[in-house]
Write a protein that binds this DNA or RNA. Structure first.
Lengths: 263, 263
DNA sequence: GGGTGTGAACATCTTCACAGCA
DNA sequence: TGCTGTGAAGATGTTCACACCC
């Protein structure tokens, strides 16, 4: 089945493009800042600048949510904050568990951006018995043995994996079996999950590699244009170039994740 | 040809699509794993599975690099590793500095994925004098005062910002002024940079928010389709749904970033 | 005038399907 | 026969430009 896109949008509001969804948090952040400064309204131009996108894109994005602006005036900040929050599902409480409390897991546990957006760190889980009971960010670390119980008791549907690559798939399977349906994966591995489970991944080194690609390109612009791109002086003067990459952060094609056996 | 009107995007001379560039690190990771298992050749189908994409996409991606495969056989693993590495610019050494050695900065400093791909942590920098000299991941932390000197002496062109949001823009400006032309930003702020400087960003809470959106959608499928989406039982049975988000990780040009106050 | 909302043009990305080569 | 490489179709995303309303 993998029905794919044979879905029927009961109401047309269900057709928000992925690219738009991915930008909503950006708008929300900018709006929250405006809200804290008690700015009552904002134009698409201003908000777009604050969010780092262009205004046409922003207006188009908002048009998918409905008509929340006022022509000639702009958008009501508070109202928009509410609408976007609701659309993203942030008006409800999302208990999350973080598995793998190394440096990264600890950083995530301490990250303030979660709590302020409806995410509550329900538990920290680590395989190391020595960690058990040790508080991180004020929350005692629990042993992996408790994973299933925690997920079920707390009604956790979102799990964060910050384990080493080797442990990620197994942790993922246990999370899913216990009821988790969304996973944020920091381990450098492709996770295979059943249909209906969302995976997003963040790979720190991938981002750096993309930067390196463009960096190399900038340097290459000065000399070689063909194939010989082997040497480059790091201290090259900065050349102008359009800045506009975008992508990455995908996982899970839509139907067929085979038995991957990664690192 | 070019684009006779507005300014020309970065996708020029060499013409590898951004989406493809963003996947090259994925392929590289999968290939490296195969290489370590001494697998000599691999088909597009197998490699695609290991990288978590579909084979048509992979073949198309590789076609932009050149014809490195053999019909009826597949791709030579070692050769592909080399070609992709070269394309990404990973055959050279990239000294990077990490600014902001909190939990996250420490996690980055310890992250093994860097060194193995040509990235060398040239220095760790923090504004806290108490951190100065303290070793993290075997590297002594240096004070922000040294920033310019370090960047110049080491020929650093890639900087990683892991400071609180409030400090990010200033750090960014100092990095750029000192010669950095690529920045990986973990602070939840839009950085404004001059032309020619690349910024990629990773926002942990954004990824979670995107997951929350889809999570809410799954739950909503069961009952309400209209506006009332306030209550939901977290322990909903998993329903099948198309899993296929994608994007995010852009950072626009546009200057003018208001004084965003972090969380 | 000012600024939203949006159809239509354009650009990019993905998938299909098959020609062509080992 | 098996699998790559790729033109062409299709889907998604972005930008333009202007109607329309405050």
């Amino acid at each position: 089945m993998a029905t794919g896109r044979t879905h029927r949008p009961a109401t047309r509001s269900r057709g928000i493009p992925e690219a738009t969804v991915a930008r909503l948090p950006l708008y929300l952040r900018a709006l929250t800042a405006l809200s804290e400064r008690s700015v009552p309204t904002v134009s698409s131009e201003e908000l777009a600048a604050a969010a780092g996108v262009n205004s046409a894109k922003l207006r188009k994005d908002f048009s998918y949510l409905g008509s929340y602006g006022t022509r000639g005036v702009g958008y009501d900040v508070e109202y928009l904050v509410y609408q976007i929050s609701r659309e993203l599902g942030l008006t409800q409480d999302w208990p999350v568990v973080i598995v793998g409390i190394g440096n990264l897991g600890a950083a995530l546990a301490n990250y303030g951006g979660f709590a302020s957006r409806g995410f509550r760190v329900a538990a920290l889980i680590d395989a190391d018995p020595a960690m058990a009971g040790k508080p991180v960010a004020g929350i005692p670390v629990q042993h992996t043995d408790e994973l299933e119980k925690i997920v079920q008791d707390e009604g956790v549907s979102i799990g964060v994996i910050a384990t080493p690559a080797g442990a990620a798939q197994q942790v993922c399977e246990r999370l899913v079996a216990a009821g988790v349906t969304s996973i944020l994966n920091f381990a450098p591995t492709v996770l295979s999950v059943p249909d209906g489970v969302d995976v997003r991944k963040v790979d720190l080194s991938i981002e750096l590699q993309i930067l390196a690609f463009h960096e190399q390109r900038k340097a290459g612009e000065l000399a070689a244009a063909g194939t010989a791109a082997s040497h480059q002086e790091p201290a090259v003067s900065r050349r102008s170039a359009a800045v506009d990459q975008v992508p990455v952060a995908d996982q899970g094609p839509d139907g067929d994740v085979p038995a991957v056996m990664p690192t």
